[in-house]
Design a binder for these strands. Structure first.
Length: 443
DNA sequence: TTGACTCAACATCCTTTGCTACAA
DNA sequence: TTGTAGGTTTCCATGTTGAGTCA
């Protein structure tokens, strides 16, 4: 006879099982809570009786009304997840209804559920969807709210700081925007919850740091995947992508070359070749001690800024704003400085992380109503913000990641009646061109 | 409750154009 | 002569968010 208990993010048992280790402090074998299912299965297979006290304090599942109708692909996704033992990740593009699939899973499981989301905005959005679609009572934790219920929505940060206390209260855990999960702190959090049933949702599972390989251990494998190209024109708007190339001014080009030269000289001197991210990090480490390295790195930053924010882009933008004078347009920049400059120059509202909550809300509302036709944003809208439909997006600058690119495109695809257009303005012969190539759609 | 602050965590950051020292 | 590793176990900048604190 073996007893399984939960203690502060750990499963505690009085006999050995694979994945456990002896704890002198607790005088028992322990493991991170997420190994709960495996441990229990092991004892069962060994013919050992198990007294399971792990979920003794789980809140009851509330009364719900389930009238959710799934589209074909949503049903397929759900089926795939169930057939993988109710563990795994569903990849669907923005606007294809990931939330609905998750709510259907929740409604069919009827187990106490925790939904983990990256922002407070998303927390409220999920809670509202649950109230509307399931007519259920819902708890919220984060952003000043603190109510645990049989269905609870929580921020990643709160899920992390309160993992010890909440890890034994939910059988089912949903990670929205699951690409956040593999980071150091959050992956530890995922291990401290005992929930045997796990569902991850994202449009963009791949991470720049390669840590997406951790998914199978933390959540389960990718069980269903569809991209934006599978749905364009059907469930989300059809779209076109247009690239416009511009050149730096003579002045910019001279400055750009000077800065690049500075970087190159330093790299040559130190026999460093920038071939991988590791090489780059080497330079960053050097810059913390070596003044010359720091200057070389600053030169790199500055050269990138010049290329990404070139004057020709602004002039091209002026033309485009005239051309699309009847459309709803979002302009995306890489840094806040350019966002504010464009706001001043074209007299359009701007949203960055410096914009107050109230002001942001007001701007988005007016954009939704049509009072504002054009808005400019830095990288704030890249994720988790419910941005009203626009049909034209103009990218002046961004990262070299597919994730950001897809997320920005996703901002335009919410409404399916209009054809969306994403225009990228790129500075030729510069680092900006390489960034654009890296994030480019056709891999 | 709010507002203004600070702090911590997370994400991005590369692709050019083969050196030097040391061990086997 | 040929092959291989080249730093320490953390972070040059900027952008973004959530949580916590204090008035």
């Amino acid at each position: 006879m073996v007893t399984l208990r939960y203690f502060k993010g750990l499963i505690v048992c009085d006999a050995y099982a694979p994945n456990t280790k002896w704890s002198d402090e607790l005088k028992a074998y322990i493991s991170y809570a997420y190994k709960y299912t495996e441990i229990k299965k092991y004892f069962r297979e060994e013919g050992i009786d198990v007294t399971d006290e792990v979920f003794n304090s789980a809140p009851p599942f509330p009364a719900i009304t389930d009238e959710i109708k799934l589209r074909d692909y949503q049903f397929e996704a759900l089926k795939a997840w169930i057939s993988h033992g109710k563990r795994g990740i569903i990849v669907l593009p923005t606007g294809a209804g990931k939330t609905v699939v998750a709510l259907k899973a929740l409604a069919s499981l009827r187990e106490s559920t925790l939904i983990v989301v990256p922002t407070i905005d998303l927390m409220h959005q999920w809670a509202n969807s649950i109230r509307e679609l399931l007519k259920a009572d819902v708890g919220e934790i984060g952003g000043g709210e603190d109510k645990v219920s049989g269905i609870t929505v929580i921020t990643y940060d709160s899920a992390y700081t309160r993992a010890e206390e909440l890890g034994d209260k939910f059988f089912f855990i949903i990670f929205d925007e699951v690409h956040h999960l593999p980071s150091e702190g959050y992956s530890l959090m995922a291990k401290m919850y005992a929930a045997p049933h796990r569902l991850g949702l994202t449009a963009t599972p791949e991470r720049e740091d390669g840590k997406h390989v951790l998914y199978p251990d933390l959540v389960g494998p990718i069980v269903y995947r569809k991209g934006v190209e599978d749905f364009a024109g059907k469930y989300i708007a059809s779209f076109d992508i247009k690239k416009i190339y511009v050149k730096m001014t003579e002045e910019e080009e001279i400055k750009y070359k000077q800065l690049r030269q500075k970087l190159r000289k330093y790299l040559e001197k130190k026999h460093i070749t920038l071939r991988s991210l590791d090489d780059f990090n080497k330079l960053v480490r050097l810059a913390s001690k070596d003044r010359e390295a720091r200057e070389a790195l600053l030169a790199w930053h500055e050269s990138l800024r010049i290329a990404v924010n070139s004057k020709a882009k602004v002039e091209k933008l002026r033309e485009l704003l005239k051309e699309f004078k009847d459309d709803k347009v979002i302009i995306f920049t890489r840094d806040t400085q350019l966002a504010y400059e464009l706001s001043k120059l074209f007299l359009i509202p701007v949203v960055t992380y410096k914009t107050s909550k109230d002001e942001r809300k007001e701007i988005l509302q007016k954009f939704r109503k049509g009072t504002y036709r054009v808005i400019v944003a830095s990288t704030v809208f890249d994720e988790g913000v419910d941005v009203p439909d626009a049909n034209v997006g103009i990218v002046l600058g961004g990262y070299g990641t597919k994730r950001q690119y897809l997320q920005r495109l996703g901002r335009l695809l919410r409404g399916k009646d209009k054809n969306a257009l994403l225009i990228e303005i790129i500075t030729k012969g510069s680092a900006d061109y390489r960034l654009s190539k890296r994030r480019s759609f056709s891999t």
